[in-house]
Design a protein around this nucleic acid. Structure first.
Length: 415
RNA sequence: GUGGCUAUGGUGAAGCGGUUAACACAAACGACUGUGACUCGUUCAUACGUGGGUUCGAAUCCCACUAGCCACCCCA
């Protein structure tokens, strides 16, 4: 019996991986325009890091983490998200000493023990970015603009940017109480889940999918009405800067985040094309996180993009590569020559294929066609004697002779 | 953790108690003796997720298990 992979852990095969490479390359290219540098942190961290950052009472920490005790009796966890680890590294290496404003991006696998479904897997991948040390709203606007820029570069303009403000430790508790007393008056109309969440996460009732809850929360107080003057001003300024650079957004005062560390600006990039997984990217400000983790009192803001979800949105696009040249050879001598020319051309930067098994010319031409090679060079005994060979343009169907040396060939196929 | 749905070859699938288990695509080789894409031919599941049962007979009915998908919870 063959062994299968683990549920929710997927292979990314050739044919699909090109799309991933394109997504990753686009992220690197765009993020570096904004001054971001990559940071790579380990997959395994101390469990405590996530308890303290994400929040003990969140679903991620309560039931979704891949946690275990290692051989040294340490409680460790395979990271369920990226921000906590990046901030841990920032603090550990005292990066604020070099520059409190760190602009970092990362990409890699994250792990959450959830039931897999469309756009959600147990090992999934995120591309994230974080900025520390700036509380100015310009950076909120810039991070959001960079995120939408990235999607635009991929040719995806469908996801819409939704923003909200969650306030700060001063104003959020006031709002939370106001909301709770409102919900209490409607408690019988709320679904079972929202009743259960009433104490732990009352805000969730606002974006509950149950029709009853949606109806019941129609007149609920809005966070935006309860923002303290500083938070209100920050939110207004963020919107102003977004408008200044033409980044379109919608305000979604019902948007709630699942991680405890968020403050002030929060946002999601949502799409209707992914079944029940509407968020392709999400993030927000976390002004208290760095100090909560024992670091300096610096603000922060960041986001994470779900790579599988982006790949799903890019499902129809073809990212397959095609070779520049296929060399068809007839006979042992020609085969050796083809091998030699192939090697020389590869050193000159051309992608070249040959047939390894000395099949018929017909068969080799079919293979060239299958690879979608741009050109095919045909070498037999005559060509060897002549020192030139027909080079066929596979798209146009025309062919003309070229000298049998790599420099001459590369001029034609890469020119 | 909780629901619902589905399991036939590399893929998409026909099949509805007795068929050599259709068909299409993909793949390999050939018809064109040194040239792809079109056309044509040949080959390609002793096998219908696994294990039990019902039956003279099961891919087809029943049960269990497993897997996958979708949804809930939650989230990227």
């Amino acid at each position: 019996m063959a062994i299968n992979g683990i549920k929710g852990f997927n292979d990314i095969l050739p044919g699909d991986v090109e799309k991933w490479q394109h997504i990753e390359a686009t992220a690197r290219r765009v993020f570096e325009l904004y001054g971001f540098s990559e940071i790579r942190t380990p997959i395994l961290e101390k469990t405590e890091l996530f308890c303290r950052s994400i929040g003990d009472a969140t679903d991620i920490v309560e039931k979704e983490m891949y946690s275990f005790v290692d051989k040294g009796e340490n409680k460790v966890t395979m990271r369920p998200e990226g921000t906590a680890a990046v901030m841990r590294a920032f603090i550990e290496h005292k990066m604020q000493a070099l520059d409190p404003v760190a602009r970092l991006y990362y990409m890699g696998p994250m792990f959450r023990y959830e039931r897999p479904q469309k756009g959600r897997y147990r090992q999934f991948h995120q591309i994230g970015a974080e900025v520390t040390g700036v509380s100015a709203p310009t950076v909120d606007a810039q991070v959001l603009t960079m995120l939408t820029h990235f999607f635009a570069e991929l040719g995806l303009d469908e996801p819409s940017l939704q923003i909200n403000s969650l306030g700060c430790p001063k104003c959020r508790p006031v709002y939370r109480e106001a909301l709770k007393s409102f919900l209490l008056s409607k408690i019988e109309l709320l679904c079972e889940d929202c009743n259960r969440r009433y104490e732990t996460n009352p805000l969730r009732a606002l974006d509950c999918k149950s029709p009853g809850c949606q109806e019941a929360t129609k007149g609920a107080p809005a966070m935006l009405e309860y923002l303290c003057p500083e938070c209100a001003e920050h939110f207004e300024a963020t919107k102003k800067y977004l408008e200044l650079v033409g980044t379109t957004y919608q305000i979604n005062e019902r948007m709630v985040r699942g991680l405890d560390y968020y403050t002030r600006t929060t946002f999601e990039l949502v799409t209707g094309l992914l079944g029940s997984q509407s968020a392709v990217a999400a993030g927000g400000r976390y002004d208290g996180l760095i100090s909560d983790l024992g670091g300096p009192a610096l603000p922060g803001i960041g986001f994470a993009i779900g790579v599988e979800r982006v790949a799903l949105l890019l499902a129809e696009k073809d990212f397959s590569r095609r070779p520049d040249l296929f060399i068809a050879a007839l006979g042992d001598e020609a085969h050796a020559e083809a091998f030699k020319i192939m090697s020389a051309l590869q050193r000159l930067g051309a992608a070249v294929e040959i047939d390894y098994e000395g099949k018929s010319l017909k068969s080799q031409m079919r293979r060239a066609d299958k690879f979608k090679s741009r050109f095919t060079l045909i070498i037999g005994g005559d060509e060897l004697a002549r020192g030139t060979a027909p080079l066929k343009d596979m798209d146009g169907g025309t062919q003309s002779d070229v000298a049998l040396n790599a420099d001459a060939i590369v001029k034609v196929i890469k020119g």
